[in-house]
């Protein structure tokens, strides 16, 4: 059993939730961007999370050492990782604005498929999950320091 495994798991959760917050912030910042790098309106991005398998040093060591009492399969717990950032394929919002430089022949402008309400909900959920991981990390830390008390 890796001693600081709990901290690594919580850290993976923190970085995944921070990535979600970053992407949500990007979506909100680009809610009115009609010209992206490819000349198309901005498309809403979304983070895809997946369970990480423990592939660090400690899990490699544990599988090499084999069955140590108390070390069973705790190495499978590897936290979470971002498997990719995908673009939302929903159609762009068409807004009638003939004076806009990006308006088409009918006077409609293709606006990004970003809904600020959805983004705010995502932001709250990411922030709550972030807090939960911080709490888990604090619990792990206080447990470790308690263990060091045994040596005194």
């Amino acid at each position: 059993m890796s001693f600081f495994g709990g901290l690594d798991i919580s850290a993976s959760g923190l970085s995944a939730e921070r990535m979600r917050m970053d992407v949500t912030a990007e979506n909100l910042a680009n809610a009115e961007t009609t010209r992206g790098a490819n000349g198309q309106p901005y498309r809403r991005k979304e983070v895809v999370l997946q369970t990480a398998s423990g592939n660090g040093f400690s899990s490699a060591l544990a599988s090499a050492v084999g069955s140590v009492p108390g070390a069973t399969s705790s190495q499978q717990a590897g936290g979470v990782q971002v498997s990719g950032i995908v673009e939302d394929q929903a159609a762009p919002r068409m807004v009638y604005d003939p004076g806009h430089p990006d308006a088409n022949a009918q006077g409609y402008v293709a606006m990004p498929n970003v809904n600020p309400v959805t983004e705010m909900v995502d932001l709250i959920s990411a922030s709550r999950a972030y807090e939960a991981n911080v709490t888990a990390m604090q619990t792990a830390k206080s447990m470790f320091s308690k263990t060091f008390d045994l040596l005194r």
């Binding site: 059993m1 495994g5 709990g6 798991i9 919580s10 993976s12 959760g13 995944a16 939730e17 979600r20 999370l49 997946q50 369970t51 108390g70 705790s74 717990a77 590897g78 936290g79 979470v80 959920s125 990411a126 999950a129 939960a132 991981n133 709490t135 888990a136 990390m137 619990t139 792990a140 447990m143």
Partner: peptide
């Protein structure tokens, strides 16, 4: 200690 790790993993995957 093992349970702490497993519960931390559950929390890290709360949105997976």
């Amino acid at each position: 200690a093992l349970r702490q790790q497993v519960l931390a993993n559950n929390l890290a995957n709360a949105e997976t």
